[in-house]
Design a binder for these strands. Structure first.
Length: 565
RNA sequence: UGUCCCGUAGUGUAAUUGGCAACACGUCUGAUUCUGGAUCAGAAGAGUCUAGGUUCGAGCCCUAGCGGGACAACCA
């Protein structure tokens, strides 16, 4: 496999899944073959929960020298669209995984599955039921009460064969008949109570068009598809644990030798302050609570990408949380840690002021401009340096000046000195204040010419260093600040409250008139930077040459904010 | 009146598969720093849901409780 070749940081300890796989290998099962698959339904965009499954399936194949298929579980033409197929492929590739030529679809197996259903009928293990959905459902019983048998359960094989064939020919209406496996209506496992395996659907399928009138249910397609593909380890989430006996039952009827896929269930990914339900994410999009599937506040892979997350940071996060059988809820701060860790090494530093406050350096020549050199990334010398213009008027952050500062405020205040990053030490001599609003409008300073960065006399120490931008050279930008989409740790897990109630009204804050250093003018879409002292930012899709737009990926850690609380 | 799964610091995971619990995030110190970032050094924090049992010895095994979750779509 080629996939990606960056060195991946893997935790030393094995997950229970790896232990199972290694035990199977040791036993010599399947001739030492490892084959997994990632089986999404193309009915929505992938989210970070899917990333966990993708990393597992492709990761196990890579680790044990096996293969991983991409298979679309497209058994319900009503919900599935080609748009989703394309986005899913894009997202998997973005994460850095490659299914090579093994792009499969459950719909590839419709013929085989139909034949298998016919086999079951012939073995008297399936029958056509003429009852409507609500009746079938009521006969199913409840988890604590057994079901009762359908009056059509005793139909003869030839009658069933005839009926099923006519269902296929389109002779019957949607919902009028289904094919059911004949298993056990009294089973304590609901999935074994004569599950429906085929239904009539008369809409066009995104791949097979109008070829089929009857479609297999997921439960009838999934396990067999794994079997057809030679999958050795079917890794899926915990909720499919109760389906496993059913899948095994089907494979028992189907298999011709010792080979059978082994299903292993793991915990799904839950993140605090968001939710993973595709249905609810779709609602957020439809109801306009976000701008789309790729809104940077969404937990979707396209949303995270637009937000400025790197594939490496997502894979790292997935690696950190691990795979277990415990239903856990992971702290979003760990995800944020993972991006910071990655971007700290990769993102060039730049100067950008979000809420500008003008500083006038009175003793600096009005017509003078100096080029100061700034290191692009102190973590990586090979990233070089750049030139930034400096003059007598600069912008600093509003919150970096206080008229009467508290203790330990290492920034600018009357009489105090700070260094302007890469330039000079300045001292505050006065300021202009709007007496009505209390707003500080300008700050007046003097600079010490002997303190230019890099020169000998610059040994002078000051407590604080501020980021700044030359007022005469700055480029304007819009900056979008994001906060968590919900203000509840588990917005969709509240019995009595709809998740919409917990939408964070301040999850998006748009700042205009932000001042950035001129080098940013040529920044390209999705390019990532660290705005020094502020956080990591990337260029949004809406950015144009005439109007720069940045998204804040995540803030830098801010111990001052913590002290200040 | 069911079946299945799970229960280890605040959170997420470990524990050579029986030898007195480790790591990451977070938190708190201190050092360092031209980013209150990063880095470095250190600290606090669980005695492993409860009660029995087996054993020289149990987070790991057994039993019973308790707690949490999944399962009743012609969805996947």
């Amino acid at each position: 496999m080629k996939e990606d070749n960056e060195t991946e940081t893997r935790s030393e300890s094995k997950s229970f899944i790896e232990s199972f796989i290694e035990a199977d290998l040791k036993e010599g099962k399947n001739g030492g073959r490892i084959h997994t698959r990632f089986p999404p339904e193309p009915n929505g965009y992938l989210h970070i929960g899917h990333a966990k499954a993708i990393c597992l399936n492709f990761g196990m194949a890579r680790k044990y020298g096996g293969k991983c298929n991409l298979r679309f579980d497209d058994t319900n033409p009503v919900k599935e669209e080609i748009e989703y197929v394309d986005s899913i492929k894009e997202d998997i590739r973005w994460l850095g995984f490659d299914w090579e030529e093994r792009e499969y679809y459950a719909s590839d197996y419709f013929g085989k599955l139909f034949d298998f259903a016919v086999e079951l009928i012939k073995k008297d293990l399936a029958y056509v039921d003429d009852q409507p959905a609500d009746v079938i459902s009521s006969q199913k019983g409840t988890p604590s009460q057994p079901g009762i048998e359908s009056p059509f359960r005793k139909r003869t094989a030839s009658e069933n064969l005839n009926l099923f064939e006519r269902m296929k020919q389109g002779e019957f209406d949607e919902g009028s008949r289904v094919l059911r496996a004949k298993i056990d209506m009294t089973s304590p496992n609901m999935h074994m109570r004569d599950p429906i395996i085929y239904r009539i659907i008369k809409s066009s399928h995104h791949r097979t068009g109008n070829t089929w009138i009857v479609y297999p249910m997921y439960d009838f397609a999934h396990g067999q598809s794994d079997y057809f593909e030679g999958v050795t380890h079917s890794l899926c989430t915990l909720e499919f644990e109760v389906h496993r006996p059913l899948y095994d039952w089907f494979i028992d009827q189907l298999k011709s030798d010792d080979y059978r896929p082994r299903q292993i269930e793991f915990n799904r990914l839950n993140l605090t302050y968001t939710m993973m339900s595709k249905r609810k994410l779709l609602e957020l999009v439809r109801e306009g609570n976000v701008s789309g599937w790729d809104d940077p506040r969404m937990p979707t892979l396209c949303g995270l990408r637009r937000r400025g997350y790197t594939p490496e940071s997502i894979k790292r996060f997935v690696d950190l949380i691990g795979y277990t059988k415990v239903e856990a809820i992971n702290d979003i701060s760990l995800l944020e840690h993972a991006v910071r860790e990655d971007l700290n090494l990769k993102a060039p530093r730049v100067l950008g002021v979000l809420n500008p406050l003008k500083v006038i350096i009175k003793n600096y020549p009005r017509d003078k401009v100096e080029n100061v050199e700034l290191v692009n990334n102190p973590e990586d010398e090979s990233m070089g340096s750049r030139i930034v213009p400096f003059c007598n008027e600069v912008f600093i952050e509003q919150e970096d000046f206080m008229e009467s500062p508290p203790n330990k405020f290492f920034r600018l205040a009357p009489g105090m000195e700070v260094r302007l990053k890469g330039a000079y030490i300045i001292k505050c001599e006065g300021f202009k204040k709007d007496e009505k609003t209390g707003n500080i409008e300008e700050v007046y300073c003097t600079y010490d010419p002997a303190t230019r960065s890099g020169e000998h006399a610059s040994e002078k120490k000051v407590k604080g260093t501020l980021h700044w931008v030359s007022a005469r050279h700055a480029v304007d930008a819009e900056v979008r600040l994001y906060d968590r989409l919900f203000n509840h740790e588990d917005p969709s897990g509240q019995k009595d409250d709809d998740y919409r109630k917990f939408l964070n009204p301040a999850s998006l804050k748009v700042l205009n008139g932000c001042k950035l250093e001129p080098s940013l003018k040529s920044a390209k879409r999705l390019e990532k930077f660290q705005f020094q002292r502020l956080g990591y930012f990337c260029v949004d899709y809406d950015s144009t040459e005439s109007k720069l737009v940045f998204n804040r990926t995540v803030q830098l850690k801010d111990t001052w904010a913590k002290i200040n609380k």
